[in-house]
Amino acid sequence: MHLAEIIKIKASEKIELAIRRHWITFMPTIGLFTLLALVPIAVYYIFGQTAPDLISAEYPRAFIVLMFSVYELTIMLVFYSSFLMYYLDMIIITSDRVVQIQQKTLFSRSVSELDIYKIQDTTSEITGIVATILGYGKLTIETAGEQENFIFDACPHVNDVRRTMMQLAKENPKFRTAEGGARVQQP
């Protein structure tokens, strides 16, 4: 399935940006799971030093191998689930809408939509040395009315995205400027 099918894109609509969290935010997860995956090797080494009879005996060794196998496969499964929850979180900006997809857990996902002409304000926040160097930060999209703001953390090139979004909002045909420069939304 393509993204255009997922968000039911209209014929006159065009996907401008499809944004995921910056890859750097997934690095700690990779580091953690790499360490966890090395635990059986460390345990096997410790057993080899402290209880060599245990791992040299045929049947206890087979049992230990099966337990390590279960552990490692579980680590891989949880890692892949973590990757899914990182990768499936995204914001899709089209010429007409902003669609935010949040993968909360493996079997829980929320999709929010906002007409682009309803955007009142967008804010980009970059905090920290790494974020400043890599140019990612928090993107906040404020709307008129009761709809909750869209917040997207670790947005790559957040300043460029903010500018693009405001430009698209102004160019949207449902948005017009009244006399004196006040912004007025089409009914």
Binding site: M1, L3, L73, L77, Y87, L88, M90, L106
Partner: peptide, 23 residues
């Protein structure tokens, strides 16, 4: 039995990738 459960969850994960348009 554990491998069977592992396989079910693995298939569900891969299906998520496909069904969410992120393949």
């Amino acid at each position: 039995l554990y491998l069977a459960i592992f396989l079910i969850f693995s298939i569900a994960n891969v299906y998520h990738i496909y069904a969410s348009g992120t393949f």
